[in-house]
Design a protein around this nucleic acid. Sequence first.
DNA 1: CGCCCGCTTGATCGTCATCAAGGGCGGTGG
DNA 2: CCACCGCCCTTGATGACGATCAAGCGGGCG
Lengths: 230, 230
Amino acid sequence: MDAFSTASVLNRMPMFRHLESEQLYLLSRHTREINATKGQRLFNKGEQAEGFYYVLDGKIKLAFVSSRGTEKIVDIVAGGENFGESMMLSSQPWPYYAQVLLQSRLLYIKGEAFTQVVHGNPRVAQLLLTSMSRRVCHLFADMEALCLQSSRERVVGYLLREIEQQRQRGETDLTIELPDTKANTASLLNLTPETFSRIIHTLDREKTISVSRRTVTVLDLERLQEGCGC
Amino acid sequence: MDAFSTASVLNRMPMFRHLESEQLYLLSRHTREINATKGQRLFNKGEQAEGFYYVLDGKIKLAFVSSRGTEKIVDIVAGGENFGESMMLSSQPWPYYAQVLLQSRLLYIKGEAFTQVVHGNPRVAQLLLTSMSRRVCHLFADMEALCLQSSRERVVGYLLREIEQQRQRGETDLTIELPDTKANTASLLNLTPETFSRIIHTLDREKTISVSRRTVTVLDLERLQEGCGC
DNA sequence: CGCCCGCTTGATCGTCATCAAGGGCGGTGG
DNA sequence: CCACCGCCCTTGATGACGATCAAGCGGGCG
């Protein structure tokens, strides 16, 4: 937990992999390692964002809350991903709250030090830009799905995207592990647990997929692609 | 339309205001000035993005299209704003198509030259980062509204945001000009023209607002704020 | 063993989209 | 100046999709 060990952990992040040790050290003095337990809240919606997070391992849920107390999960972040750079950079309040789904280790990197490093390192700025553009594109895609796809199309689309991602990683089997409980997966797709359940079980009865606990196996990719509305 | 005049136009963009003339010139050689007429399409959804746009004046509609041919307007971009940097930077296909709503003048800045300038100028990179983070935050806000607000709340929320923006610009009157036709404003809020019409006329009948053509006047701000779900 | 949690399944309800028709206003041309 | 046309908008009737309410099941864990 000393500055040296933190620096070496930072150095393993894609964004900081090439940094000089001096800058890693500067950064590490403004970085907190966090060991968070299931259920814990990292921050609430509306609080000022003064840094961003990098997930070493574990699983974090990011979710909106409405005035009526209902929630909509924006993302479930796993090891190797970061979140919150945008809110930090434009010093906005958090648009969502963050809750730990299972025992997690994170880095919390404060804004001031990070901004310095970004300004001094075109390469870091570059990496940050690409990561942020990817996020923007992703948000547009989500938005499109939410606005003009039916509930079934969203589920099918989700499954196909997961398969596609795995295929790009070279994994060949047609098996998908849901990111968390069915209820949370449903919320990710802006569905109630009930509708999500009904949809995957119709697909199951149609022999298009087979569902067992949190594992979905695609049996008939062709048929799945037909019902996706693309 | 020569390189020199283009350079001076580029120089008026916030992002390039401080650039050396040499770099402005480099950029200008990869910039096209576009005079577009109403109805014209700048690009279609799915085409590769190889540059981004800056609107000098006029009005551009950005919209998704679904498999069923229905559309959802993402944004209506007016003079002084830019769009497409993210798609360009991550060399993604356009997630929306762009159509000109009224006679417009734009700049189209190609990716290669822009990337060079960004790499060479920390200040430009910095400005780009802030603009992109704002976009991300904005997208999160839109997403929240779409996912957990009712149609009425979205309309009221929209009106309140417009009022708030004007107040920050020092404008004091409670008058809002819709960005385009009522149908297009509706689509911006993910509503049908019919629902949008019904909602603003209930608000009108309640004497909360008064509607005349594309002008909405807020009569009772208090009451409006109550019905926004915040 | 019993409880709680995650999930399923059925019945009902509400919101908003869709379908359909008509009105008003501006623009154009006689 | 008036008549006509087209577009934008309004208003009503109906319908569908998905949320909500309610009940029950199964499995893991204390």
